[in-house]
Design a protein around this nucleic acid. Sequence first.
DNA 1: GTTCTAGAAC
DNA 2: GTTCTAGAAC
Length: 206
Amino acid sequence: MAEGVSKKRKVENEKRENDKKPVKKFAGHWSQGLLDTMNDPEFIVESDDKMTIIKDKYPKAKYHFLVMPKETIPNLKSLKSDHLDLLKHFEEKGRALAKKTDAKVKFRFGYHSVPSMSHLHMHVISQDFNSPCLKTKKHWNSFTSEYFVDSEEIIKMLEKDGKVHFDVKDSQSLLNQDLRCHVCKKAQKNMPTLKDHIKMHDYSVD
DNA sequence: GTTCTAGAAC
DNA sequence: GTTCTAGAAC
């Protein structure tokens, strides 16, 4: 029935038109999105003269914040020894926020070795990983494999070598690893299975 | 980074 | 038939 099909298509096209979002609040490429979030009062948790802490727009755990410098630092590659005090400051502020937020739950403080989003950001993330925004293998591996590098580790590298470098291909392969529970290391069939499995573990501080 | 969705996996 | 993953997005 050709008429029926075309009518259906017309309705779908109209729906698509109506769904088009008005105008973006801010212009720019998606990879610059953190700059927008950093200026959105709704997401700012705290700030001082050196840094701003925001809530992650798509939290991958019960608590997930980002600590970002006020000065422009695109990524880990841009770091020099001069930035050591700043990184130590990030970690201090991150640890303090975690303690203030929920002193009873485990957190990690660190960086993705090769992040998608521009502008240096240190993750402050609780280890429950209980969040509807955590959906893909890439999400999972980015926070539970060596792709996630503790702040302490980054600081050590910078102190030792005066720079921080990660091989892009190595990092990429870390994201493709098979799914595994971050606590008991048991292999998991798929994301729904994994998300259900990790509920059984305890994420309180020792 | 997310959204959408085709086709693989079940 | 439904669930789940993975790749395109101009």
